[in-house]
Amino acid sequence: MIVGVPKEIKTREYRVGMVPAGAAALIAAGHTVLIETNAGVGSGIPDSEYQRVGAQIISTADEVWKRSEMIIKVKEPIAPEYARIQPGQIIYTYFHLAGVDPELTKTLLQKKAAAVAYETLQPDDGSLPLLKPMSEVAGKMAIQVGAKCLERAHGGKGILLGGVPGVRRGRVTVIGGGVVGLCAAKVAVGMGAEVTIIDVNMERLTYLDDVFLGRVGVLASDSESISRSVREADLVVGAVLIPGRKAPKLVSEALISEMSPGSVVVDVAVDQGGCIETCKPTTHDNPTFEVHGVVHYCVANMPGAVPQTSTYALTNVTRPYSLRIANVGLAAAVKEDRALARAMNTYNGHVTYEAVAKDMGYAYMPIADALAGK
């Protein structure tokens, strides 16, 4: 199989979809790897490292897309890339189709492209192994950027999360106790903040209470606990995930208006539409905006700011699946691996992930039926 890795073009996206070790593994298995010039430079990987393992360096994105049977990326294709998608092409990346430009889904369906989505690849145990490393990065970054935004020079109220003796600590509310929420809480507790985690799953709350040895507050999610905690918080982190679906709006604009001026919200769920009503996607160039005096940080590709960590963390987990697809072909790989079957968001002109179909108003076709040509 010919596998292509184009350079990411989203604003300040420095990650790359494959590292030299991944290229080496594919080449050793008899495949061809095409890397766009300077695709890895933002992650500290020069072209020479890819050439050393036998990959071909290609000067233009157009040629990489045109020649490749499978494209491996980090972020979903954006508008300038839609025309580059080839009929029937396999694209293996984060898509978050329910939360991005609907034209992308339309293009994938028109071109009968196979969208293999990192974020919905799910083994039978319910884990999300390709989402987890970036959730860990984003959760930890949420507190870093939130603490920075709380500084007065950045529009915040001027609160130091850890406080000092004789002065109250910053209050952090984390909505969602999954991987993002856990990692955000770890950093916030480490900085000395007063932390509350809200989640709907009581078993998860029990686990978090045990992990933190009572150093964080854990609350069952309901409108009252969310309202009270958000209203009193200096920093709110939105960390809610429903695989493949738009995030539920758990924090209303009315509630945002009740927060004290200079408070900060960081919505890590923004790439799935956000769980805070006032949030909209921003970029690393212009990461924040204010609503009702509250600073909003809503960058949809937060881990792209730390690519040397993020790229290697991501490719460690994506590599085995790309090799399997290349070795046996997509159809066979999907039939053999139920986790990969769940990663299929579109195939042969059909939406093959039920939550995406429901949120976007398309008919749903199970992947088994789509593979059978029904």
Rank of each mutant, 00 (worst) to 15 (best):
G177F: 10
T32V: 04
Y207I: 02
A355N: 14
A254I: 02
A55V: 07
S223L: 03
A305P: 00
K280C: 02
S127Q: 05
G349L: 00
G192C: 07
L130C: 05
V291Q: 12
G126C: 01
H96C: 09
V137I: 15
R15T: 02
A184C: 08
L323W: 06
S48M: 08
M360S: 13
A333N: 04
A332H: 00
P303W: 10
E151F: 15
I72S: 10
E203A: 14
D199E: 00
Q110R: 15
L26G: 04
I78Q: 10
V189L: 15
G44P: 08
T93E: 02
A368H: 07
A61E: 11
P6Q: 06
I78K: 08
R319P: 00
E290G: 01
R152N: 01
E354I: 05
A184N: 06
Q144V: 12
A21D: 15
K75M: 07
S135K: 06
A25V: 05
E203C: 00
V294N: 03
A24T: 01
R168F: 11
R231Y: 04
E336S: 13
V172M: 05
Q110L: 13
S225H: 09
I175Q: 05
E336H: 07
Q51D: 08
R215H: 07
E8Y: 05
D285L: 14
V251N: 00
V294R: 06
G17E: 10
K157P: 00
A24H: 11
I27L: 12
G42Q: 07
L330N: 08
G17P: 10
I45M: 01
E203F: 10
H154E: 15
M134N: 08
A147V: 03
G4Y: 00
Y353I: 00
V172S: 06
A113H: 08
E258H: 03
